[in-house]
Design a protein around this nucleic acid. Sequence first.
DNA 1: TTGAAAGCGCTAACAC
DNA 2: GTGTTAGCGCTTTCAA
Lengths: 349, 349
Amino acid sequence: MIHPSHGGGKVSQVTSAPARTKRPTMVDVAALAGVSVKTVSRVVNNAPYVQPEVAQRVLAAVAELGFRRNHLASSLRSGQATATIGLLIEEIANPFYATIAGAVAEVASEHDTMLLIASSEENPAREQQLLRDLCARQVDGLLVVPAGEDHAFLRSEVERGTPAVFLDRPAGGLPADTVLIDNRGGAHAGVRQLVERGHRRVGILLDSTAIYTMRERLAGAQDALAAAGLADDRLIRYGIRDPETAARVVGDLLDEPDPPTAFFALNNRISLGAVEELHRRGSDAALLGFDDFDLSRLLPYPFTVVAYDTRTLARTAAELLFRRIKGDRSAPRDLLIPTELVNRGLPRH
Amino acid sequence: MIHPSHGGGKVSQVTSAPARTKRPTMVDVAALAGVSVKTVSRVVNNAPYVQPEVAQRVLAAVAELGFRRNHLASSLRSGQATATIGLLIEEIANPFYATIAGAVAEVASEHDTMLLIASSEENPAREQQLLRDLCARQVDGLLVVPAGEDHAFLRSEVERGTPAVFLDRPAGGLPADTVLIDNRGGAHAGVRQLVERGHRRVGILLDSTAIYTMRERLAGAQDALAAAGLADDRLIRYGIRDPETAARVVGDLLDEPDPPTAFFALNNRISLGAVEELHRRGSDAALLGFDDFDLSRLLPYPFTVVAYDTRTLARTAAELLFRRIKGDRSAPRDLLIPTELVNRGLPRH
DNA sequence: TTGAAAGCGCTAACAC
DNA sequence: GTGTTAGCGCTTTCAA
């Protein structure tokens, strides 16, 4: 470190922090203002029928004591909404989930609601625990990107008034609102384009078929290939978790006799590895990837992505949730977000 | 859309959802199990001194009714922690803040604590409102990336037992723990390296000096240039908000007589625009950027970044907060996260 | 227009 | 070991 001192800091207090003083309550405010607790409550909640001068006294006391209403106590007694919703995702740091969280936060903010976020880390047991914790905190509703396959344990919570909307993957064992990407249709459209451009051998690279989106995308790709009489299971490679593996698998396929002339990467981690390997080799194979990502247009190899609007996915789900929270009791809905094909990457040099 | 139907969905219920049934309380469980409410409380909280068979009866009743403890009521009465902390950032969808949120979520999870996240959108008024809302929800502590310059309004909350730790930017008007990046030192080291490599004219590209990090980084760069007798204010360009503007400004500087042979981009949005323009022109100018970012190593121009570990920044702050929550009353601390210089981008072709 | 009393769901303090 | 009582901070109900 060249310069351990920094400019904007203030001088640290040498003394330690003062002992905690108790938070003032409505009782304290009432005593100071010389009114009843109920009157304080009225003023704090902007209820009508309070004489202006009384209200003034109360507000003065509120300011003097630094009173702030205890939102927990308030919603406990009123039984009303806590103005908090829960969002369960896999991992906040992941850009896909970060985008979802951002869009959900926006909608929540429009409804004066706060957002409690939890990460399942793709662990169904943890998912269940976290959803229960969120319910225990009396959230007004739940937005869930499922990790597990079974959400029956949520049934009683939903019946007791905590609506849940699932996004990106379907819920299991629970009739509930669901908002999904058109995985199958997008994969179909992309692969059909490859076929129309004359490709006859398409390498397919995916993670595990235990993952819902992988199954759907694979099915869409296979439909499109089968329609052209080009299905060939020997060109499918499973279990690709990271870009490094993807790069290696692309290399392996290219080194075989009669190699693919095109590749379909079923998620963006895989696309990334494929881009690197194809660029490294100066290949001229076509590349199709599912999921767009940041900076994709600046990568050193041309490719096509099946893109969709993650924010629309999240906003749609969040808006549906708030409709439920406001009392919409109609039958659960299944919504599908469309995809489109977009060209990315820099031209070959 | 090619394929509007999708595979994994379940059949929608045609009937609408059943009416809400009330959530069962400890009173309900106690009645069913034939014990007192207090005993239910003991069992639910794993307190000792409950006969195994009584506990069994209670647990059976809990299961039958689908009872779940109301966490709000519990922490209202016990006056204990709510096991919830608040995180205030600028915008969740931004990768920098998403990384922070992810690291904070990890630490929170290690302390069995949930995370309430709010976005200030860089609006000081909104920041103040949100911090107050978080306090009203009785969070155990606050983690704040400041938007405003004045946080005196938090003083009473902090004194009443809601500790706050500031990160990435200093708090204003409030003695509080702060965890910052070594902006000045990192900028100094990077620019010194440019100077040592023979550069005499370094273009400096930044956003507004109203931003703390910009001021610090600029000061570090100027220190390094001044030390070599190379300071030249005519090579500084202010008010660059986005990559497009950055690209244009780089072009403008290169088109001047006696152009810079090196550029220093004070954040990664600016770096991105500079990379694009330098690549487009086939320039051989050196580029230094502050902030690393995803995929930086695959961009089509070689550059150096002042990198730091965002996760360390966030984890350090979160761990400090939990120490405060656990009762540490020592003097506020100012911590500095170190930076390092890293080479990124692909070689010129 | 204002206030007193009861109680939201839970737990601390004590009694039994 | 278990139950009773009171009360966290607030809002509802109803009386004044």
